[in-house]
Design a protein around this nucleic acid. Structure first.
Lengths: 208, 208, 208, 208
DNA sequence: AATGAATGAGGATTCATTCAT
DNA sequence: AATGAATGAATCCTCATTCAT
């Protein structure tokens, strides 16, 4: 018992340090991007010496990738899943969009850092960028699945186009909120976005 | 004649040097962002020593701001103005969107750098960011003007919302193209975007 | 034993490195002043890379302040304390002055750097200047205490004036020695100085 | 006539530029010393480009030397010459000291810069330092002359010692004023200094 | 008499990273 | 599991100076 606790305590310390580092790194990287995130700044913010960061992470690239991974997970947690499959397609799509908007307001670091990484073109691509793009592709697929479920008549190409448009609109609206410093009704804009996508899907489904 | 010109060219041509520096800086900053743009890299690419860059620009911030300004101007030049005011509103809006899409494919540096600057939160805001946001606000206004002209029945609030949505969609679609490495039909996506905004405007104009 | 010590010595001896840096910095700063003391020069003299200096000192200002502090302490050590309280006031004052003169000959860095810092007026006052002025104020007070003890009849204002004059004379004579390159009998001049201050004190004490 | 005026005008412009440069340089060098005086700073303060400074002065060393020379001259002008040779030796010496004190309050740049140059030890001695030391030697001689005139019985060695002490005291009191930020009665301190030197001279003259 | 432009050397400081303990 | 110390490369920027005009 006691021995088990002691062992756990020690290991838990390691885990806690790792968390402290990541907590500091998300905050800095979410605001300053890859280059702007210095190990020294992370060290100062989390209270652990720089060399300790290298005990937990192979290098800066590894740290940033871990940041993307963890902030994606916490963002996933923040997105409230839609309840049961009730209501019209428009209602369901609108609720989903509003939920995403609210999650982005509460946890903006993930997408902000991800977009910064996505826009940069550096000689050796950071692993964090790859991770973000995978997450993005997954999201695209999920949206495509929802669209297919709601509009079975939709052609595969159109589903893909609409999913792309849906993700792009979300990114753009998020950027708009970042730019205006938060003084914007992101939920309303996402709901408008959902409606336009819904209408387009309806029209496309009817057209074929 | 020619000899005199040749001789003159070598030394002390401030305007040309400034252009050379900006040419190098647009390219680097458009790919790597603010932090990623080192004066040494710009110096290496333009051939002038770093100290000469400081003759033409007060500091790095000043340089980046000039980059934004100049690349915005060259982007403006690249956007082909729509011909006469002919065709239905949908046709006209679609043509405009396609033109913007084509200009972004040809001159992506302006928007890529601008978005990177817009997303970053640094202690002292770079002047380039301010410049970009102003340009963005101007663009928003222009779109609002076009919408008002095409849909006189539209309420002012709706015009603002739609212009915001139009800009955000453009940003998002641009990001998508950057992310996918250019293998996407940006013109088609912009045309779809134009159509959805047009439909929304029509509906909103009828609703009031 | 010895082998273990030898092996240990090589890496990571913070205290010794700090001393090496300070040793180099005193020498340079004592001769060249604040601006003339480049981190590169200190690095070259102490053998540690410039970046290591920044491990031990926050910045150049911090280094110079530490130099002032340490050189003041070693100067204090160099000033032989006067033995017992024996002899006439004149004798005792003269011995003190001679001791100070000898200490300044042996450890001139402290006062030379201090005076350079004191004379400069820079936008943001170096911390080393503040430290020096505090040390100076303390010295002034000690002299005032001695005068009060030796000449109880002396008015407080006169004690202050005489202490000021005593310190100023010491500074001026030190400057004279620095200017003439050491070819001057500083001890004799300090003894003359002590006698004149003594006579003035005697006269002032009698006058009230 | 007109031609002469034109010629004069042109030359006068050159002279005026030189003065503007020196005006700026005295101010900066008087506050920041040799290293702290950058050509760029002088250029910014006088409004002329850096290259123009090099038209008027060979190099930085030349400029600083000119600064010392000119500020010495303006200091000389500021020292009110004592009227006729009337009054007791003590009265005459006291008036002289008070005059010097007042001139130093009004024109402190000369001595401040001079002392900074005097204290620094740099590999190649600045010409300004040499100039200052010559001026200092001249001053020493003048004081010696006055002392010899007032106290004919004084031995040459004692005259030299007293002149040295007189100059050193003046330097030290000036430093004290600089250190305390001007909140000190420099005239009173100089008068005390004069009296102590006078008393010492009287005693020495009697002793031999 | 003056200056716009250029330039190489050097300024302070921060970087990501390593290593012995 | 953690860290104090070290380090070479890179950072932005200023330096004194030159030179063609």
């Amino acid at each position: 018992m006691t021995s088990a606790q002691t062992t756990r305590k020690k290991r838990a310390n390691g885990v806690e340090s790792r968390q402290r580092i990541l907590d500091a790194a998300v905050e800095i990287a979410g605001e300053r991007g890859y280059d702007g995130t210095s190990i020294a700044a992370v060290s100062a913010k989390c209270g652990l010496p720089a060399s300790s960061i290298y005990w937990h992470f192979k290098d800066k690239d590894d740290l940033i990738a871990a940041v993307i991974e963890r902030s994606f997970e916490s963002w996933l947690t923040a997105v409230e899943l839609p309840g049961d499959d009730v209501g019209t397609p428009l209602e369901r799509v609108t609720v989903m969009a509003a939920n995403v908007a609210r999650s982005l307001i509460g946890t903006p670091d993930f997408l902000r850092l991800g977009l910064m990484l996505a826009l940069e073109r550096r000689p050796t691509e950071p692993r964090g960028r790859t991770v973000f793009l995978q997450v993005r592709a997954t999201t695209h697929q999920k949206i495509a699945d929802v669209l297919t479920a709601l509009f079975p008549a939709l052609h595969a190409d159109d589903v893909d186009t609409l999913a792309t448009y849906a993700v792009a609109g979300a990114d753009g609206l998020f950027v708009h909120r970042e730019v205006t410093g938060g003084s914007v009704d992101l939920v309303a804009l996402f709901e408008l976005h959902a409606r336009l996508v819904h209408d387009a899907a309806t029209r496309m489904a009817a057209a074929r």
